[in-house]
């Protein structure tokens, strides 16, 4: 019998490694399946006829149809809703960056930790707390169902997030760089615009994208503050639910339509987003 340790050693090690690999990938598949199942369900139902949707047991293999998507764009003014969502999400993101970046820079530069906590708290308070005061305020200013009111209300979600992402980013920038810019002739504003922002682009992109996605997905502020003129896509999905019936096919097709842009943006920018979210976690 071969009892030489050099020959006996690798076998248990190989088994151990194989077992760990199975455990590792098995866990990943389970997690992915758990999170992707609703998405898959939504996509499949969007491609089914109403009868196929309610069929039991549900079929995985069937003849797909685009009728639901046709219905979304023909029976509803869905392009207008997408346009509204783009204006509101884009506007609130842009305004969030314009206000949030200097705020985060100031917090990082002057170590205003209390202010940072205060901003973070406003993100943690449930959004519905702000909803009623905001509604009353905008109604008094006759601003309900305007882009402005929706952009401002969505700022409550995006702005703290941008500040939260950017503060560690700015804190990680060496102070010497700002001093060098001052010696080169910059004032605080030009240092911020010409040096700090270009260096912090991964953070700016991360904050911007996530703020856009939060705003795009926002339902609560939109359903209260928007009406026919400014209806956004998450609210428009509600059109498929009526008192008498629910148009599951249309609902799913609309849901797919509004999810696709968000998914595409996330996939294209995931490298930036991960780098942005982990900035400052490890000293470079």
């Amino acid at each position: 019998m071969d009892t030489h340790p050099a020959n006996a050693g690798p076998r248990p090690f190989l088994w151990h490694r194989t077992f760990m690999n199975i455990l590792y990938y098995g866990t990943i598949v389970l997690c992915v399946f758990f999170f992707l199942l609703p998405l898959l369900w939504m996509l499949l139902n969007a491609l089914k006829t109403p009868l196929q949707i309610v069929e039991l047991p549900p079929k995985l293999f069937f003849m797909p149809t685009l009728a639901n998507f046709e219905n979304v764009f023909s029976s509803q003014n869905f392009l207008q809703y997408i346009y509204n969502s783009l204006i509101i999400a884009g506007g609130s993101t842009l305004l969030g960056l314009v206000l949030g970046l200097p705020a985060a820079f100031s917090i990082a530069l002057h170590k205003q930790k209390k202010l940072a906590v205060f901003i973070l708290v406003s993100r943690m308070v449930p959004g519905i707390t702000f909803l009623l005061p905001l509604f009353i305020m905008f109604r008094n200013f006759r601003m309900v169902d305007t882009y402005t009111s929706l952009i401002l209300s969505h700022l409550l979600v995006g702005l703290p997030f941008i500040v939260w992402v950017m503060v560690p980013f700015f804190e990680s920038i060496p102070r010497d760089l700002m001093d060098a810019a001052r010696v080169d002739g910059c004032n605080v504003f030009s240092t911020f615009i010409r040096i700090i922002i270009p260096i912090s682009m991964p953070g700016v992109v991360t904050g911007g994208i996530l703020s856009f996605i939060f705003s795009w997905n926002n339902f609560m502020f939109s359903i209260v503050l928007a009406s026919n003129r400014t209806k956004t896509v998450p609210v428009a999905i509600f059109n498929f639910i009526s008192y008498a019936q629910i148009d599951w096919g249309g609902l799913m097709a609309a849901a797919v339509t509004i999810t696709v842009p968000v998914l595409v943006i996330t996939i294209l920018t995931q490298k930036y987003v991960i780098r942005g979210l982990t900035a400052g976690a490890v000293k470079g």
């Binding site: 010497d176 760089l177 060098a180 001052r182 010696v183 080169d184 910059c186 004032n187 260096i199």
Partner: peptide, 17 residues
């Protein structure tokens, strides 16, 4: 301010943009 003193400075950490 530094820009009006007509000085130039070299930093320990280079401080290149």
């Amino acid at each position: 301010p530094p820009k009006d003193r007509n000085i130039a400075m070299v930093f320990q950490n280079y401080a290149l943009y």
